[in-house]
């Protein structure tokens, strides 16, 4: 028996990996729920109910999906061009820091400019953070996986320093926490009285914009060409280095927006636990979405639903909520496996 590559997978076959991965994940979750002493159907039902069962639950899921859409898009954009950005976490925090600096009124900007400027500054901050590793990659051939990954730790420590020092809230009773944003710097809620903020709408718009860039613009074409075969792209005259740098700016900018959206839409101030690893979870989201920007929205909703649902499930069924982490990890593993399996077929000699 051996594996044989499939030359032209059908549309059904290409859609198969995420479907297979999600099914396998549900199976693993059921088994683990049984081990933990729960009824697997009840546990899965409670997760679903916790994620979508009420208006409150649904909006909570959408809110949780928002940063994942941004970081998922950031990863999808970069991975398509084979720029392995593992640093969305740091880029998110960079966006958050700039949002706090401007949004607390440090520059005394007029109120109507505050919100858009915060967003733009957050994008720039994230973009700049990825530009460094991208330049190191194109100029010196330094592996961006290493630089972006390690920079996450450096930047998180830098954020801790800021929160203990220059950005520390003087009224914060000594907690490592920034001052609150001015009301004009807050993203309003979409419906008054409900927690869902405009960051979610912004994330949907971002997904649409990326989809349009990918399919309709020369940049999208160039990014794909560079990702698929940089040698052929260079031979054809596509400016490979410039395309990689543009990809880095776009990817970092999207991750920076995640930080802006979380601070301005949800939290209102910066703490060093703003992101429970959205930058890394974005990798899972992007992989589940097969790097498709609209798929990212669906994948982010799936992942957010698991987390939100598992929280409420654990209160009701007594099964630990870290079942969600296991589901997420197994979804990624199954996805990688399923992609491999749908690219090959098993052949008996």
């Amino acid at each position: 028996m051996r594996l044989e590559p499939i030359a032209s997978p059908s549309a059904a076959r290409r859609i198969m990996p995420p479907v297979l991965a999600i099914l396998a994940t549900v199976l693993v979750a059921s088994l683990l729920a049984m081990v933990a002493g729960g009824n697997p159907f009840a546990v899965l039902g409670l997760i679903l109910k916790g994620a979508f069962g009420s208006k409150f639950a649904l909006l909570e899921t959408l809110n949780s999906a928002t940063p994942l859409i941004f970081t998922g898009l950031a990863i999808a954009v970069a991975f398509r061009a084979k720029l392995w950005n593992i640093g969305a976490e740091a880029q998110l925090y960079a966006g958050a820091v700039l949002t706090v600096v401007l949004g607390t009124g440090a520059l005394g900007l007029p109120a109507y400019l505050l919100l858009p400027l915060c967003a733009v500054a957050a994008m720039l901050a994230g973009a700049m953070l990825l530009l460094g590793p991208a330049l190191l990659k194109t100029r010196l051939g330094v592996d961006e996986v290493v630089t972006t990954l390690l920079f996450n730790f450096i930047f998180l420590l830098f954020v801790s320093y800021l929160l203990e020092g220059p950005l520390k809230d003087p009224m914060g009773m000594g907690w490592p926490k920034s001052a609150r944003l001015l009301p004009e710097a807050r993203l309003p809620r979409i419906v008054e009285g409900l927690r869902l903020h405009w960051g979610f709408a912004l994330a949907l718009i971002a997904a649409l914009v990326i989809w349009v860039i990918n399919t309709r613009t020369t940049l999208g074409y160039e990014m794909r060409a560079v990702g698929q075969n940089a040698q052929a792209a260079a031979f054809a005259g596509i400016p490979v280095t410039r395309v990689i740098l543009k990809t880095a700016l776009l990817s970092g900018g999207l991750a920076g927006l995640a930080g802006f959206s979380e601070v301005s839409g949800l939290k209102g101030s910066l703490t060093s636990d703003l992101s429970p690893g959205f930058g890394y979870t974005g990798i899972v989201v992007a992989m589940l979405a097969l790097l498709h920007p609209l798929g990212v929205v669906l994948a982010a909703l799936f992942v957010a639903a698991i987390f939100v649902g598992a929280d409420s499930m654990s209160r009701a069924a007594g099964v630990p909520s870290y079942l969600a982490d296991i589901m997420l990890a197994s979804a990624l593993l199954f996805m990688v496996l399923a992609i491999l399996l749908t690219k090959f077929r098993l052949r008996r000699d």
Partner: peptide, 27 residues
């Protein structure tokens, strides 16, 4: 000479997409 997973259209314009098959960045 070609990008294996690009379709024929995408390969046909590999050298001229910028000059002949796009305007202001739109394909």
């Amino acid at each position: 000479g070609t990008i294996a997973d690009f379709d024929l259209t995408e390969n046909a314009i590999l050298e001229t997409y910028a000059t002949r098959f796009s305007r202001r960045g739109w394909m």
